[in-house]
Design a protein around this nucleic acid. Structure first.
Lengths: 110, 110
DNA sequence: ACATTATTTTAGTGAGTACTAAAATGACCT
DNA sequence: AGGTCATTTTAGTACTCACTAAAATAATGT
Protein backbone atom coordinates (compact mmCIF):
# COMPACT_ATOMS: atom_id res chain seq x y z
CA UNK A 1 0.00 0.00 0.00
CA UNK A 2 2.64 2.49 0.96
CA UNK A 3 5.10 0.49 -1.13
CA UNK A 4 4.30 2.84 -3.99
CA UNK A 5 5.36 5.86 -1.95
CA UNK A 6 8.52 4.10 -0.83
CA UNK A 7 9.30 3.16 -4.41
CA UNK A 8 8.83 6.72 -5.64
CA UNK A 9 10.80 8.24 -2.79
CA UNK A 10 14.17 7.52 -4.39
CA UNK A 11 15.10 9.84 -7.28
CA UNK A 12 17.01 7.10 -9.01
CA UNK A 13 13.93 4.89 -9.07
CA UNK A 14 11.88 7.70 -10.57
CA UNK A 15 14.55 8.07 -13.24
CA UNK A 16 14.36 4.35 -13.96
CA UNK A 17 10.58 4.47 -14.09
CA UNK A 18 10.80 7.28 -16.58
CA UNK A 19 13.33 5.32 -18.62
CA UNK A 20 10.80 2.51 -19.13
CA UNK A 21 7.81 4.84 -19.43
CA UNK A 22 7.09 4.45 -23.13
CA UNK A 23 9.38 1.63 -24.21
CA UNK A 24 10.36 -1.52 -22.39
CA UNK A 25 14.01 -2.21 -21.72
CA UNK A 26 16.08 -5.05 -20.35
CA UNK A 27 17.86 -4.67 -17.03
CA UNK A 28 21.14 -4.39 -18.90
CA UNK A 29 19.87 -1.68 -21.23
CA UNK A 30 18.55 0.23 -18.26
CA UNK A 31 21.86 -0.13 -16.51
CA UNK A 32 23.64 1.27 -19.57
CA UNK A 33 21.46 4.37 -19.23
CA UNK A 34 22.89 4.96 -15.76
CA UNK A 35 26.63 4.42 -16.08
CA UNK A 36 27.35 5.98 -12.71
CA UNK A 37 25.60 3.26 -10.73
CA UNK A 38 26.34 -0.44 -10.38
CA UNK A 39 24.31 -3.16 -12.05
CA UNK A 40 23.39 -4.58 -8.66
CA UNK A 41 21.85 -1.31 -7.55
CA UNK A 42 19.76 -1.10 -10.73
CA UNK A 43 18.53 -4.64 -10.23
CA UNK A 44 17.54 -3.84 -6.66
CA UNK A 45 15.67 -0.75 -7.76
CA UNK A 46 13.84 -2.73 -10.41
CA UNK A 47 12.85 -5.24 -7.75
CA UNK A 48 11.38 -2.48 -5.59
CA UNK A 49 9.52 -0.93 -8.52
CA UNK A 50 8.09 -4.30 -9.49
CA UNK A 51 7.08 -5.15 -5.93
CA UNK A 52 5.24 -1.82 -5.79
CA UNK A 53 3.39 -2.70 -8.98
CA UNK A 54 4.85 0.22 -10.91
CA UNK A 55 6.62 -1.87 -13.54
CA UNK A 56 6.00 -5.29 -15.04
CA UNK A 57 8.55 -7.85 -16.14
CA UNK A 58 8.61 -9.99 -19.27
CA UNK A 59 11.26 -12.70 -19.39
CA UNK A 60 12.77 -13.77 -22.69
CA UNK A 61 15.58 -16.22 -22.21
CA UNK A 62 18.08 -14.67 -19.89
CA UNK A 63 16.79 -11.16 -20.57
CA UNK A 64 14.32 -9.51 -18.23
CA UNK A 65 12.39 -6.73 -19.90
CA UNK A 66 10.79 -4.10 -17.72
CA UNK A 67 8.12 -1.58 -18.60
CA UNK A 68 6.00 0.92 -16.70
CA UNK A 69 2.46 -0.18 -15.89
CA UNK A 70 0.98 3.11 -16.99
CA UNK A 71 -2.56 1.85 -17.40
CA UNK A 72 -2.95 0.79 -13.80
CA UNK A 73 -1.37 3.94 -12.43
CA UNK A 74 -4.28 6.22 -13.24
CA UNK A 75 -3.93 9.63 -11.66
CA UNK A 76 -0.46 8.79 -10.42
CA UNK A 77 0.71 8.31 -13.99
CA UNK A 78 -0.86 11.59 -15.08
CA UNK A 79 0.84 13.38 -12.26
CA UNK A 80 4.24 11.93 -13.10
CA UNK A 81 3.85 12.91 -16.75
CA UNK A 82 2.81 16.36 -15.62
CA UNK A 83 5.94 16.73 -13.52
CA UNK A 84 8.24 15.48 -16.25
CA UNK A 85 6.66 17.74 -18.84
CA UNK A 86 6.96 20.70 -16.51
CA UNK A 87 10.60 19.89 -15.85
CA UNK A 88 11.25 19.68 -19.58
CA UNK A 89 9.44 22.96 -20.18
CA UNK A 90 11.51 24.58 -17.46
CA UNK A 91 14.74 23.30 -18.95
CA UNK A 92 13.63 24.41 -22.41
CA UNK A 93 12.79 27.83 -21.08
CA UNK A 94 16.16 28.19 -19.40
CA UNK A 95 17.98 27.02 -22.51
CA UNK A 96 16.09 29.50 -24.65
CA UNK A 97 16.57 32.44 -22.34
CA UNK A 98 20.24 31.54 -22.07
CA UNK A 99 20.40 31.54 -25.85
CA UNK A 100 18.71 34.93 -25.95
CA UNK A 101 21.20 36.26 -23.42
CA UNK A 102 24.04 34.86 -25.48
CA UNK A 103 22.72 36.57 -28.62
CA UNK A 104 22.49 39.82 -26.69
CA UNK A 105 26.06 39.45 -25.51
CA UNK A 106 27.31 38.81 -29.02
CA UNK A 107 25.22 41.62 -30.50
CA UNK A 108 26.18 44.40 -28.12
CA UNK A 109 28.70 47.03 -29.12
CA UNK A 110 31.93 47.26 -27.10
CA UNK B 1 10.92 19.75 -7.42
CA UNK B 2 11.52 16.43 -5.74
CA UNK B 3 10.62 18.07 -2.43
CA UNK B 4 7.09 16.81 -2.98
CA UNK B 5 8.26 13.21 -3.20
CA UNK B 6 10.42 13.62 -0.13
CA UNK B 7 7.50 15.12 1.75
CA UNK B 8 5.20 12.27 0.79
CA UNK B 9 7.78 9.59 1.56
CA UNK B 10 7.10 9.62 5.31
CA UNK B 11 3.86 7.87 6.34
CA UNK B 12 3.39 10.27 9.21
CA UNK B 13 3.46 13.25 6.87
CA UNK B 14 0.87 11.60 4.67
CA UNK B 15 -1.29 11.09 7.75
CA UNK B 16 -0.90 14.75 8.64
CA UNK B 17 -1.72 15.81 5.11
CA UNK B 18 -4.86 13.72 5.28
CA UNK B 19 -5.73 15.26 8.62
CA UNK B 20 -5.83 18.73 7.05
CA UNK B 21 -7.34 17.55 3.78
CA UNK B 22 -10.81 19.01 4.13
CA UNK B 23 -10.58 21.18 7.24
CA UNK B 24 -7.78 23.37 8.43
CA UNK B 25 -6.29 22.76 11.84
CA UNK B 26 -3.79 24.43 14.10
CA UNK B 27 -0.48 22.77 14.84
CA UNK B 28 -1.73 21.99 18.34
CA UNK B 29 -4.93 20.40 17.10
CA UNK B 30 -2.97 18.32 14.66
CA UNK B 31 -0.63 17.26 17.42
CA UNK B 32 -3.59 16.17 19.51
CA UNK B 33 -4.57 13.85 16.65
CA UNK B 34 -1.25 12.06 16.99
CA UNK B 35 -0.71 11.52 20.69
CA UNK B 36 2.12 9.06 20.15
CA UNK B 37 4.45 11.65 18.66
CA UNK B 38 6.01 14.79 20.13
CA UNK B 39 4.90 18.29 19.27
CA UNK B 40 8.32 19.06 17.88
CA UNK B 41 8.12 16.23 15.38
CA UNK B 42 4.71 17.42 14.19
CA UNK B 43 6.00 20.93 13.73
CA UNK B 44 8.95 19.65 11.72
CA UNK B 45 6.66 17.61 9.51
CA UNK B 46 4.43 20.62 8.94
CA UNK B 47 7.49 22.60 7.91
CA UNK B 48 8.43 19.97 5.34
CA UNK B 49 4.89 19.80 3.98
CA UNK B 50 4.73 23.57 3.69
CA UNK B 51 8.14 23.83 2.02
CA UNK B 52 6.96 21.26 -0.52
CA UNK B 53 3.89 23.38 -1.22
CA UNK B 54 1.48 20.70 -0.07
CA UNK B 55 -0.05 22.73 2.75
CA UNK B 56 -0.55 26.41 3.38
CA UNK B 57 -0.36 28.29 6.65
CA UNK B 58 -2.67 30.96 8.02
CA UNK B 59 -1.49 32.70 11.17
CA UNK B 60 -4.00 34.02 13.67
CA UNK B 61 -2.32 35.37 16.76
CA UNK B 62 -0.17 32.62 18.14
CA UNK B 63 -2.05 29.91 16.29
CA UNK B 64 -0.79 28.57 12.98
CA UNK B 65 -3.53 26.99 10.93
CA UNK B 66 -2.56 24.51 8.25
CA UNK B 67 -4.60 23.21 5.37
CA UNK B 68 -3.94 21.08 2.31
CA UNK B 69 -3.50 22.97 -0.96
CA UNK B 70 -5.80 20.63 -2.86
CA UNK B 71 -6.43 22.97 -5.76
CA UNK B 72 -2.80 23.20 -6.80
CA UNK B 73 -2.17 19.49 -6.41
CA UNK B 74 -4.14 18.46 -9.48
CA UNK B 75 -3.62 14.83 -10.37
CA UNK B 76 -1.59 14.26 -7.24
CA UNK B 77 -4.58 15.20 -5.12
CA UNK B 78 -6.84 12.92 -7.08
CA UNK B 79 -4.44 10.06 -6.65
CA UNK B 80 -4.17 10.59 -2.90
CA UNK B 81 -7.94 10.66 -2.55
CA UNK B 82 -8.10 7.51 -4.63
CA UNK B 83 -5.66 5.73 -2.34
CA UNK B 84 -7.40 6.85 0.81
CA UNK B 85 -10.78 5.81 -0.52
CA UNK B 86 -9.39 2.45 -1.52
CA UNK B 87 -7.84 1.99 1.89
CA UNK B 88 -11.17 2.85 3.52
CA UNK B 89 -12.98 0.44 1.23
CA UNK B 90 -10.49 -2.27 2.10
CA UNK B 91 -10.89 -1.64 5.81
CA UNK B 92 -14.65 -1.59 5.42
CA UNK B 93 -14.51 -4.86 3.53
CA UNK B 94 -12.39 -6.48 6.19
CA UNK B 95 -14.61 -5.17 8.97
CA UNK B 96 -17.69 -6.52 7.23
CA UNK B 97 -16.23 -9.91 6.50
CA UNK B 98 -15.00 -10.07 10.07
CA UNK B 99 -18.53 -9.23 11.19
CA UNK B 100 -19.90 -11.96 8.96
CA UNK B 101 -17.37 -14.39 10.40
CA UNK B 102 -18.35 -13.31 13.88
CA UNK B 103 -22.03 -13.90 13.12
CA UNK B 104 -21.12 -17.33 11.78
CA UNK B 105 -19.20 -18.09 14.96
CA UNK B 106 -22.08 -17.01 17.15
CA UNK B 107 -24.64 -18.83 15.06
CA UNK B 108 -22.93 -22.18 14.83
CA UNK B 109 -24.04 -25.04 17.03
CA UNK B 110 -21.49 -26.41 19.49
C1' DA C 1 30.75 -30.49 -18.83
C1' DC C 2 32.49 -25.98 -19.13
C1' DA C 3 32.45 -21.18 -20.34
C1' DT C 4 29.87 -17.01 -21.20
C1' DT C 5 26.27 -13.75 -20.76
C1' DA C 6 22.37 -11.56 -18.07
C1' DT C 7 20.58 -10.88 -13.86
C1' DT C 8 19.74 -11.40 -8.89
C1' DT C 9 21.17 -11.76 -4.17
C1' DT C 10 24.06 -11.06 -0.13
C1' DA C 11 27.04 -8.65 3.21
C1' DG C 12 28.73 -4.49 4.64
C1' DT C 13 29.15 0.72 4.77
C1' DG C 14 28.02 5.64 4.76
C1' DA C 15 24.58 9.24 4.47
C1' DG C 16 20.11 10.85 5.27
C1' DT C 17 16.16 11.32 8.40
C1' DA C 18 12.26 10.61 11.82
C1' DC C 19 12.23 10.99 16.35
C1' DT C 20 12.86 12.91 21.46
C1' DA C 21 13.93 16.29 24.89
C1' DA C 22 15.07 20.71 25.78
C1' DA C 23 16.03 25.50 24.54
C1' DA C 24 14.42 29.48 21.88
C1' DT C 25 10.95 32.44 19.61
C1' DG C 26 6.68 34.84 19.33
C1' DA C 27 1.93 36.46 20.72
C1' DC C 28 -1.14 37.64 24.24
C1' DC C 29 -2.43 39.00 29.02
C1' DT C 30 -2.33 41.42 33.60
C1' DA D 1 8.15 43.78 32.84
C1' DG D 2 6.95 39.15 33.85
C1' DG D 3 4.17 34.94 32.82
C1' DT D 4 1.84 31.66 30.25
C1' DC D 5 0.41 29.57 25.81
C1' DA D 6 1.43 28.01 20.91
C1' DT D 7 4.87 26.91 18.03
C1' DT D 8 9.52 26.48 16.10
C1' DT D 9 14.31 25.29 16.34
C1' DT D 10 18.37 22.84 17.95
C1' DA D 11 21.30 18.95 19.37
C1' DG D 12 21.70 14.30 19.63
C1' DT D 13 20.36 9.34 18.67
C1' DA D 14 18.64 5.23 16.36
C1' DC D 15 17.28 3.33 12.25
C1' DT D 16 16.47 2.99 7.37
C1' DC D 17 18.18 2.60 2.85
C1' DA D 18 20.94 3.53 -1.53
C1' DC D 19 25.05 2.02 -2.80
C1' DT D 20 29.39 -1.08 -3.93
C1' DA D 21 31.77 -5.34 -4.48
C1' DA D 22 31.51 -9.99 -4.68
C1' DA D 23 29.03 -14.41 -4.66
C1' DA D 24 25.05 -16.93 -6.38
C1' DT D 25 21.44 -18.18 -9.84
C1' DA D 26 19.88 -18.90 -14.44
C1' DA D 27 19.79 -19.46 -19.49
C1' DT D 28 22.46 -20.23 -23.72
C1' DG D 29 26.22 -21.93 -26.53
C1' DT D 30 30.38 -24.97 -27.60
Amino acid sequence: MSAVFDALAAPRRRDILRRVWDREASAGEIHRSFPDVSFGAISQHLGVLEAAGLVSRRDVGRFHYYTARRREMGHLGKWLEEMWDDALATLKFHAESEERASRRRKGRKP
